[in-house]
Design a binder for these strands. Structure first.
Length: 480
RNA sequence: GCCGAGGUGGCAGAAUGGUUAAUGCGACGGACUGCAGAUCCGUUUCCUGGGGGUUCGAUUCCCUCCCUCGGCUCCA
């Protein structure tokens, strides 16, 4: 296992990562409330933690990655009522859309997506325990609140002092609370809502406790790594700590806290409730998963980024094209001729450089997941390969594979340069070269009208032709 | 008001107590091309929000101020 450092938001310091039971790592990331389609901001958070899980796994850690789904809450209920739909069905539908986007983005490292409503028994058990131990109280209507004053460490994560809070700054103060900082862990049901029986009458889970009930069940009282968007730091993560540590009597609930920076939409936070969102699915449609992942990972995961429509992803697309060009060329040759292809052996110097680079990439990323610096190293490699492209075309299969090793590294850890195998197979691989050969003959005899006609027809069929010194190359227009 | 995260070239965005502060985008010049596109090469060098301090030396450590964004009890 490689030495990994992580910036821990609790201690506000970069610490050496030491899981409790190596090589096992329990990773919990706050997922989303699927009451509307996911936006570009959500994509960033989940691509970032996908990278974290991928990298840790590469380095020998056995990561169990859990990401919850809040499939029942006030917003879902309100939205469902507005659309005359069932809240659970609405959540199911939007979650399916979210999963599809994640799949397309290559964010496949989550082992388990628990649904809140599947953990009602665990939630009720935890609520009961908190009431019995005096940490929570029951209001007249049957709602149960956690009493923040009973938990001395409250505020440790966010630095917030209870007395300095400004009640009602954004959310209405609930009159059933004893103190404004208390938060609901079990909500008495209103007629028509999904509800479960409880010792305090029918109700449904509060938000914060859903996570601690899940992690308590799946990881126990303490686990290694907790992630989420920076906006969840307070109150949500603070509440999780209070709930879990009060319920179990064991602290700390989690050893390392990671918070990912938010995506702003031209200066203001992208948020479903504000409405200034840019659809994730649409972005994937327009630019492809690789461009989007490059955009996300091309900055420190902690820093805020500004999403400028018409600019951010366009720039990432240019960069991605340049970065992936040599890898694409190598992959094309290997797909065409196979890994045993005959050719020149790779010069020792390049072989060693590739090996050294992969090691540097690991070291760089292991430094608090510095994906931006790793990408800078990859650009250096892309430039080096571009300079010797004619030489590359003559290499044997082993040499090509060795040269592509840094790209394979990036695919494994960053999820970049994923190729859809066989994209150019089938009839295209036969027909296009025949047409290009005909076009080459036309050009040789100076019949440019015929040459351009063939190029136009190919373009109409979605094939881009590029003339170079060594003949004409082609690719599908949508593969860029 | 309080808490948190940020402030680096035209733009995006890294890094380090010490040679020219990465990398990308853009722009400009060149190569290649029948043309176009794509690609490749080169150029574009800001001394790091303001002020103070520590140090032989700070963008980096400390203090202070300013600005932006986020949070202040169900936002990734």
């Amino acid at each position: 296992m490689r030495r990994v450092t992580i910036y821990d938001s609790m201690s506000r310091a970069t610490r050496i990562f030491a899981p409790m039971q190596p090589p096992r790592v329990g990773l919990y990331v706050c997922g989303l409330t699927p009451y509307a389609p996911a936006h570009v901001g959500h994509g960033r958070t989940f691509v970032i933690f996908d990278m974290v899980a991928r990298a840790l796994r590469r380095w020998g850690y056995r990561v169990f990655y859990v990401q919850n789904v809040t499939n029942l809450d006030d917003k879902l209920i309100a939205r469902a009522a507005a659309e005359n739909d069932d809240p659970l069905a609405l959540a199911e539908r939007h979650f399916a859309g979210f999963l599809r986007s994640m799949e397309r983005l290559g964010a496949r490292s989550v082992n388990y997506y628990p649904f809140a409503t599947d953990y009602v028994p665990e939630i009720l058990e935890q609520v009961k325990g908190l009431v019995d131990r005096g940490y929570a109280y029951v209001a007249d209507d049957g709602s149960v609140y956690f009493e923040v004053a009973k938990f001395a460490r409250y505020g440790a994560l966010s630095g917030q002092k209870v007395e300095a809070l400004k009640p009602g700054a954004r959310v209405e103060v609930d009159p059933r609370k004893r103190a404004p900082e208390d938060f609901v862990i079990w909500k008495a049901a209103t007629p028509g809502e999904p509800s479960w029986e409880s010792p305090w009458g029918p109700g449904r889970p509060g938000w914060h406790i859903e996570d601690t009930a899940m992690t308590g069940r799946l990881f126990g009282a303490k686990y290694d790594l907790h992630g989420g968007g920076l906006d969840l730091n307070f109150p949500h993560h603070e509440a999780e700590i209070a709930l879990s540590e009060s319920a179990t009597g064991l602290a700390p609930m989690v050893e390392y806290w990671m918070h990912s920076g938010l995506v702003a939409m031209t200066g203001e936070k992208m948020s479903k409730s504000i409405g200034n969102v840019s659809s994730l699915e649409q972005a994937i449609d327009d630019f492809g998963p690789g461009v989007l992942r490059l955009y996300y990972l091309n900055a420190s995961y902690r820093s805020p980024v500004d999403f400028v429509p018409g600019k951010s992803l366009e720039e990432a697309r240019e960069a991605y094209g340049r970065l992936s060009a040599p890898a694409d060329r190598i992959a094309e040759i290997l797909e065409r001729d196979g890994p045993d292809r005959a050719g020149d052996p790779l010069p020792k110097e390049l072989e060693e450089a590739a090996e050294r680079l992969v090691d540097d990439l690991d070291t760089t990323l292991a430094n608090d997941f510095n994906s931006r610096e790793a990408i800078a190293l990859l650009f250096g490699w892309a430039r080096r390969l571009a300079e010797i492209l004619p030489q590359i075309e003559r290499l044997d299969g082993a040499g090509l594979t060795a040269l592509a090793a840094p790209y394979a590294w990036a695919t494994e850890t960053l999820g970049l340069f994923e190729r859809t195998p066989g994209a150019r197979s089938g009839g295209w691989a036969t027909v296009v070269p025949l047409l290009l050969a005909a076009r080459a003959r036309a050009r040789a005899r100076g019949d440019y009208a015929e040459s351009d006609r063939i190029r136009d027809e190919l373009r109409a069929a979605g094939v881009e032709v590029e003339d170079g010194a060594d003949g004409s190359a082609w690719q599908f227009a949508d593969a860029k």
